[in-house]
């Protein structure tokens, strides 16, 4: 309890407890985390810790990004910025919970673009998450997908893969992920026939392609780079719009004539209805965080391409991508929900 930032003593508040055992208790709240008051919003933000919720388990790339940003923000805001992992339903659970919290700037969420742009193609309508209840504060970075072939498959280029059409098995990182969408659309456009084998996440999919259990798989570059460098897998294509700075020799799908720009983007968002001054302060602190040397080298180490755009740009970009993916899957008659 020593390093917790200057904490203003909150007003005494009367709390009605349920149950017959105690009727009413008068308490000087001094650090509880329940029943957060929206009353303090605006005046002198922040009045307490700013929590960033992550819809994925600790240790994954989304979690690491949240923690890297949180460090910088804590320094700038002068309060602690804890990262809370609330995994479930691809992040939909966390997003729904944060969207329902008071819009006082103390509750933020780190969003994955795929949850908004791709997952709705695979799940029922009432589970699809949209940006309507959220206010996006800033875009952070872009994590590119690469199509990898196992060393034993003998594929050196995408053309080799096309020759093998018919008995290709390809690993994806799960239903409703960028990995699934990118491969499904690419193979449809290139008229490659194959069977999708969904894995639970990037790491088992990568393991499967390294061990030649599937011939190809698409995973995020950050996870795959060391295996590429070791020669255990061969990168065939990148799904970014432009060549990835960390893989300058690997062609993009777009270059090869396939219209499948798929990347994972991350952004910070808050519940809708943030007071203007709070919003400005938060954006300022995010800008400060991503300008730090530590954060820059974090991006570099994790092979993340900075994609630092404003909240409005994020909303526009993600909405456009969602429409594009919808159109692509309609055009090629692809259903992400059928494996």
């Amino acid at each position: 309890m020593t390093t917790l930032a200057p904490r203003t003593l909150r007003t005494r508040r009367v709390l009605l407890g349920a149950g017959a055992a105690f009727a009413a208790l008068t308490l000087a709240a001094c650090g509880g985390n329940v029943a957060g008051g929206a009353d303090a919003a605006g005046a002198d933000f922040p009045t307490g810790p700013v929590t960033i919720t992550v819809g994925q388990d600790a240790g994954g790339s989304t979690d690491l990004i949240a923690r890297a940003v949180a460090d910088g923000m804590a320094e700038d805001l002068g309060v602690s910025v804890p990262v809370v992992n609330r995994a479930g339903a691809n992040g939909a659970l966390a997003t729904e919970e944060v969207a329902a919290k008071p819009a006082d700037g103390h509750e933020l969420i780190l969003l994955n673009a795929s949850l908004i742009t791709i997952t709705p193609l695979a799940v029922s309508d009432d589970e699809a998450v949209s940006l309507d209840d959220l206010e996006v504060l800033a875009g952070l970075s872009q994590d590119d997908y690469v199509l990898l072939a196992s060393a034993d498959s003998g594929f050196e280029t995408f053309d080799d893969l096309k020759q093998a059409s018919g008995d290709v098995t390809y690993g994806t990182t799960g239903v409703g992920t960028g990995s699934q969408l990118a491969q499904a659309v690419l193979f449809a456009q290139a008229e490659v026939e194959g069977t999708a084998v969904p894995f639970d996440s990037g790491s088992p999919a990568l393991t499967a392609v390294v061990g030649d259990q599937v011939q190809v798989a698409t995973v995020q570059l950050g996870e795959a780079k060391s295996q590429i460098d070791a020669g255990n897998v061969v990168p065939l294509l990148a799904f970014s719009a432009e060549r990835n700075q960390f893989l300058p020799d690997v062609p993009t799908a777009v270059e090869e004539g396939y219209d499948v720009p798929v990347s994972q983007y991350r952004a910070v968002a808050a519940p809708k209805g943030l007071p203007e001054d709070v919003r400005t302060r938060l954006v300022e602190s995010i800008d400060a965080a991503i300008a730090t040397e530590t954060y820059r080298s974090f991006n570099e180490n994790n092979l993340l391409t900075p994609h630092e755009i404003s909240g409005e740009e994020v909303t526009a970009e993600w909405t456009e991508l969602a429409e594009k993916y919808q159109a692509l899957t309609d055009e090629y008659d692809i259903s992400l929900a059928e494996g």
Partner: peptide, 12 residues
């Protein structure tokens, strides 16, 4: 709350 700093809902 004190030592581990978990997010268990706590009043105080």
């Amino acid at each position: 709350v004190g030592a581990l700093g978990t997010n268990v809902p706590h009043l105080f």
